[in-house]
């Protein structure tokens, strides 16, 4: 079945910003570093970081989305996001992530307050895949700091499909 008028109208739309509950901070960087056992001195060694091109501690770039994870209590209110509105005619019951790219543009530092928006880039017509029929949905999450500078992007494609029986 073809995409509805409404689904097509959602393509290209972007949500309002969703804010990180806290500013970027050294304790959370340290917790992450412990889990990964990452010795990169830019993340935890003040003296090294001061003498580096960054002039101070930076957060691991891959933590970009960690800062924006929602708090567990009280559960935050989320703005309107275009992908939640998709109708997608068909009895699709499963999601699988098929591609995930993250790009890092600017350093993120302790004290920064990040936010992100969610943009619906594309929704394909129904395609037949190895695992079932479905639609590929591509979204971009755009991360900004408190100055409005884009620090990075996450481009993600998921397949919403009916698992073959």
């Amino acid at each position: 079945m073809a995409l509805s008028e409404k689904d097509r109208s959602l393509i290209g739309r972007e949500s309002a910003p969703i804010y990180a509950p806290d500013e970027v901070c050294k304790p959370m960087i340290r917790h992450w570093v412990e889990a990964v056992e990452d010795a990169n001195p830019l993340y935890t060694d003040e003296e090294y970081a001061r003498g580096s091109k960054f002039g101070g501690i930076i957060a691991p770039p891959q933590m970009m989305m960690v800062w924006c994870m929602p708090r567990m209590w009280p559960w935050p209110e989320f703005p309107w996001v275009p992908m939640a509105e998709l109708e997608l005619p068909g009895d699709y019951d499963t999601f699988v992530a098929t591609d995930m790219i993250r790009e890092f543009y600017l350093p993120v530092r302790p004290g920064d307050i990040l936010s992100y928006t969610m943009k619906l880039d594309s929704v394909t017509e129904e395609k037949k895949t190895r695992i079932g029929k479905g639609h590929f949905i591509t979204t971009t999450q755009i991360y900004r700091n408190q100055r409005g500078e884009v620090v990075g992007k996450e481009i993600r494609t998921v397949l919403k499909y009916k698992a073959s029986t």
Binding site: D38, A39, N40, Y48, P61, Q62, M100, I101, E103
Partner: peptide, 15 residues
């Protein structure tokens, strides 16, 4: 970055 040392900068990852 273990391999490059801290002067190697992460620019992009496809996971």
């Amino acid at each position: 970055t273990d391999w490059s040392g801290p002067t190697g900068e992460l620019k992009r990852i496809r996971f």
